[in-house]
Amino acid sequence: METLEKPALTQEEQFQARIDADVRIEPKDWMPDAYRKTLIRQISQHAHSELVGMLPEGNWITRAPSLKRKSILLSKVQDEAGHGLYLYSAAETLGASRDQMLADLHSGKAKYSSIFNYPTLSWADMGCVGWLVDGAAILNQVPLCRTSYGPYARAMVRVCKEESFHQRQGFEVMQTLCEGAPAQKEMAQEALNRWWWPTLMMFGPKDSESPNTEQSMKWRIKRFTNDELRQKFVDMMVPQAEFLGLTVPDPALKWNEERKAYDFGEVNWEEFWQVVKGNGLCNADRLQARVQAHEEGAWVREAANAHAAKRKAREGVGA
């Protein structure tokens, strides 16, 4: 039988062919350096977001208004610590070290989700963070359960399960407030007014200004563009806000029958970039809190290592 001579595929082409066939990439597989770097950047950013994200909610654990709420909030923040752990481990499978990733966070080189640079001022913020911020996170993260890199995708399956639980809890906090006394409903509306726009910013810059999107889509790290996800979020949340009896703080918000979607106003991109650059209200405080915890914990980590080494040495002698 005669065969047609095909030119041999390069490593890069073989890699892309696997991606196109939706075959998961695993740690030991060959991958382009840029793919590895993009993933390390994205996964470590995600891990840092979980870690820094513990702070604005942790801020209310000691002030939660009932024992039940306190318990739910504490276990939620604990889940976030757990997500941080899975994600740091996923990044480690790509050759990144946790120490280096943390050093990059502490030096300001690595980013984390800007939403956590906004302050939590009232109990209703615990509702908004769960309902809106976790809601936006879920939209960003559900497609990541099918992302091309195996360990990341598997970590995200666990993360997403817990996030949707958190989102329901956040909605329930809002619902309780909205069905409560006028002061509680006001608290809920005031919180929505502050959180709505920063949440829309969570999907990142406009597609036209998102330099990484195209390549990430090609590698199937990302599966939807920022603007697609932002639109989905608005379409999902507006009816929920209406159900709660709350007003979304956007005068341009209007149902578009033709598009079967909501038209909405323009995000304040100047604010977005300022917060990304580190000039938001809480950027310095959040970073300071993380750096301080790390520095003050140094002697504890050293003690644990020293003790483990002594123990190992003793066991060596005993053996």
């Binding site: 942790g58 000691t62 306190k70 923040v77 752990l85 809190a289 915890a293 914990g297 140094a298 504890v300």
Partner: peptide, 17 residues
């Protein structure tokens, strides 16, 4: 719970929570 988010190691943050 006051330690939450401020622990010396993430694993110990989890343990205290």
């Amino acid at each position: 719970s006051e330690w939450c988010g401020h622990g010396p190691i993430l694993e110990q943050d989890l343990a205290m929570a």
